[in-house]
Design a protein around this nucleic acid. Structure first.
Lengths: 242, 242
DNA sequence: CGCCGTCTTGAGATTCCTCAATATAGGTGG
DNA sequence: CCACCTATATTGAGGAATCTCAAGACGGCG
């Protein structure tokens, strides 16, 4: 259930022949790791879904700072601003080889007129993404780097993780800089934290791939409060009022 | 064009009589400042829109830290998880008196079957919100408190600002803590920055309301780089590579 | 007119970033 | 198959931004 057309949210709830029809109208494209799928600022002409592979959506500020907005997995809609004839707000780059489906926005819009369910499916994906963003916002506002990092990795694990003999592997390269861009931190800081976890055998790297040997241990980072002292706090961040 | 039913995005593009019909089916409710519209965790039974007034959407972490996800203005859809029979992910609290419209999710769903345009309107709002969130994520990752604060205020200004004799006023109370929760900072830090701006006559407060006397000046904070030294940087945040 | 919720402001602690030098891995061409 | 080369990662030192904690001032409301 990791890839293939059967998990495309956009098609959910459609009668099989309708789904097949919509699918037939998609443009299929093979993409390779590091290939740019679209670029921020371009007019968004079609709605995208990965049938397989993975991609990252990122933004670059005028000053060159990067933010990874999201890692996209197969079945998720991206580039949906096309429906509204807007511009892509992010760069999309494949992080592993795969197959991309595209629906020209015009086509999809007319299709929706007959099958409103498709619009629901888009709404579903957007809601899910919005929720993800809210979570990240909360994290970024309140959590220290270590927690954010742990959470980011756990998310990657259960979105893309593949069980192997000695741990869960993220099937595409995720560099220190990528993680930094994902959690709003910097390469050196991420490197230090990850190094520590490597020494404790919680994670490992095997040819550019991240392998989480002990998922539990990483998750535990979130619970063992960094402050062992049971000193009651009355923070202006509103952390724990008594 | 600040409130009233004519700016409800949900109704955009509908034939007048259809819009009127949908509007007729809404439940109207008068709400008062500080009134809770719904709470995070509740099953989302209806989709909401303000006809007038304003509300804030916020989350509270288990530890008590707060985040303001968004200030909602009249015409914007909120509580849309209802369409998917989910739970409200945030608390919604009115920040000023106003009128709230609600459509039970069931009703709206069947309406959409005949009028897919309504689904588009929802998608439009969700896309817009997603974009807002991406912007905030970028800010939170890369910008110092001062910039985030300036941007937050400018956003409030052009979303809710009302021109008065001596500046633009935000027509509902926005406390230091609120601003802190909005930009991922703390009350004392926000207070200090704002104090400085008050002394420079850029902003002011008149009975719990924020008044921006010199919008330009606040905007200028974003451009005058905090680092006056033209020292070339090669940061790991990827700020300016040459 | 007094009280309670908000702000202000100070001082110190701390996390994390910045800058920079080196080490490493993995892919490549001989 | 090995040595090389380049992109990445490691690590150290220092400093800055901002958070914490805490005490007092303020101001709007009842």
């Amino acid at each position: 259930m990791r890839d293939g057309v059967e998990t495309i949210g956009l098609l959910a709830g459609l009668a099989p022949e309708i789904a097949a029809d919509l699918l037939r109208q998609a443009q299929r494209r093979t993409v390779h790791a590091d290939e740019v799928l679209f670029t921020a600022g371009q007019p968004a002409r079609s709605v995208h879904v990965l049938a397989s592979g993975a991609a990252k959506l990122m933004q670059t500020t005028p000053k060159g700072a990067r933010v990874i907005v999201k890692y996209v997995r197969p079945g998720e809609v991206f580039g949906s601003p096309a429906l509204l004839d807007r511009f892509y707000p992010v760069d999309a780059v494949a992080v592993m080889d795969g197959v991309e489906l595209q629906w020209p926005s015009e086509l999809l819009r007319t299709f929706i007129d007959r099958q409103p369910r498709v619009a629901f499916n888009v709404i579903h994906d957007l809601e899910t993404r919005l929720r993800e963003m809210e979570d990240r916002l909360r994290d970024l506002s309140n959590e220290p780097v270590e927690h954010r990092l742990a959470r980011a990795i756990l998310k990657l694990v259960d979105t893309f993780g593949r069980q192997t003999d000695d741990g869960v592997e993220i099937p595409f390269p995720v560099g220190r800089q990528d993680l930094a861009d994902l959690i709003g931190s910097t390469l050196p800081t991420v490197s230090r934290t990850l190094r520590a976890w490597e020494t404790q055998r919680q994670i490992r790297r095997s040819r550019r791939r991240l392998v989480i040997a002990d998922v539990e241990a990483v998750a535990r980072v979130l619970y063992q409060d960094t402050a062992p002292e049971p000193k009651p706090r009355r923070s202006h961040r509103r952390a724990a009022r008594r």
